[in-house]
Every structure is written in C-alpha cells, then in structure tokens.
Simulated scan of single mutants.
Amino acid sequence: MRLVLADDEAMVRAGVRAILAADPDVEIVGEAANGRDAVELVRRHRPAVALLDIRMPELDGLGAANEIRRVAPETAVLIMTTFDEDDYVTRALHGGASGFLLKTGDPRELLLGVRAAAEGGAYLSPSVAHRVIRQLGGPRLQQEIAAREHVDALSDREREVLALVGAGLSNAEIARRLHVVEGTVKAYVSAVLGRLGVKNRVQAAILAYEAGLVPRGDA
C-alpha cells in the first residue's frame, strides 16, 4: 500500500510514520509539510492513499483533498485532525475523503483506516462515526424520501452492492459475499457512484443508510 503523508508538524509526521511502520504492507512514498506539496507528490507517485492533516499552510487538508480527487481520483484520501467538529467532518466527506481520523484516537485506528481506504473502503474514527449515525437517526423524512428515489433508479444487483458498501464491506469482502470476482464489484461500485451522483463510498454509504438499505445495527 503506497502512501503519501502530509502534516506541517515534523514530530507528528515522525509519530505517524512510526505507527505505519508496524504494518509491513505500508510504504510511504512521500512526505509533505503543506497541501500543495502533498498534491504534487500524489500526482507524481499515484499512491493508494493520501493521509492529510486538516490544518496545513498554503493549502489545507480539505483543499488538498479536493485537488487530489481531481488529479488522481484513484487515490483515497484520509483526513487527520485533533478536532472533530461537525463542520470539519461534513466538509471532509463532501470533499470526497474516504475517512476521518482523530489524532487523539487509538493508534490502531490509523492502521485500520489506511488499510480500509487502500482496499476501497472507508473509515471514520468511532467518536466521529457515532455523531454521523446520530445525525442520520434524526427526523429526516424528506432526506429519506429523496434517498429512496435515488436508490429506486438502481438495478437489484446495484442496490445489493450499495447495501454492502453501506455496511462497510470492502470490494474484496463484497466479492466473496456475492460469489463474484473483485473486478466485477469494482465495476458495480463505479456504476452505483455514477448513477447516484456521489463522489465516494462514504457518501454512497450515507445514502444507503438514509434509504433504509442498511439496518441500524450494521451502520
């Protein structure tokens, strides 16, 4: 799993690097202290994952995420921060990020998040995930109706794939569940994202939840 790491604090980068070194499958191909350099490193190396601090000079993590989605859409973006305000989470997810990690969280979350993103999945720190689910659990009838209308346009198989994405399964896990090859799942996921008009799996998962495809216990 090739990865670009960006944080303007050298000590934080060293700490993250040390945690990632625990996973022999992770290779850091570039490090940056600002968002502009991070985008350039992604453009040059085309890593599986870009791990970005949310607050950096020149171009912050959210701006860098938008640029990376434009120049290297195959690269998954994970946002790191010491803050978990709703505005940051919302902006990160709407900007196409595949996950949101708190620097104050368990170091194991970092490894879980990187692996999930590299495998085509998504990851939210537990405290962030609870807040997102709590928001989705409120009285949002109009959103539910709109979500169901979007989902109704999908084929039966596409809805099945969307439900599994919403339950947090990676492409490989979905392939095993449906008894198909992983390439077929990737094609279905791409088709679903396009037909729903969403940027990534996180947004698709939220839509699946709002449409009632994902039981609350699986969210």
Rank of each mutant, 00 (worst) to 15 (best):
G113R: 09
A50E: 11
M56Y: 11
L101N: 01
A76G: 13
A117F: 12
D60Y: 10
M80I: 04
R108E: 15
E119M: 05
V114I: 01
P57S: 01
I68D: 01
I68C: 03
T90C: 07
G61C: 07
P107S: 14
L51S: 13
E40D: 14
N66H: 02
F100L: 06
A76S: 13
G96L: 04
T81D: 10
T90Y: 14
L102W: 02
L112S: 13
M56K: 11
E58R: 12
P107H: 15
L102T: 12
G96M: 05
L41V: 11
I79W: 00
A72C: 13
E109S: 10
L41R: 13
T104V: 12
R43S: 10
H94W: 00
T81S: 15
E58W: 06
T104M: 01
A65C: 15
D53H: 05
I68L: 08
T90K: 14
A92L: 11
R43I: 10
G105H: 00
A76V: 09
L111H: 13
G105D: 06
L110Y: 00
L78H: 12
Y88K: 02
L78P: 11
R108K: 10
V42K: 05
A97Y: 09
A97E: 11
D84W: 05
R115P: 04
L62N: 07
L62C: 05
R115S: 06
H45Y: 15
L110F: 09
V89R: 04
I54K: 03
P73R: 07
I79H: 12
T90H: 12
L52A: 06
E67F: 00
A118G: 14
D84T: 13
R44P: 06
D37M: 14
G113C: 06
F83T: 07
E67L: 13
A48M: 04
L110R: 09
I68M: 01
E58I: 07
G61M: 00
L41C: 05
G61L: 04
A92V: 12
A48S: 15
E74P: 12
V77E: 06
L101V: 11
R91F: 10
E119H: 00
E119R: 15
P47L: 10
A72Q: 13
H94F: 02
G113N: 07
G95Q: 00
T75L: 02
H94E: 13
I68W: 10
D53S: 07
A48F: 00
I68Q: 02
F100P: 02
R70T: 15
D84Y: 09
T75D: 05
L78G: 02
E85Y: 12
A116I: 03
D87N: 14
L78V: 13
G95S: 05
G99R: 05
F83D: 12
L102N: 11
D37H: 14
I79C: 01
L52R: 05
K103G: 03
K103M: 08
E58L: 12
R44F: 01
E67N: 02
T90M: 09
V89I: 14
A117Q: 04
I79E: 09
M80V: 02
D60I: 03
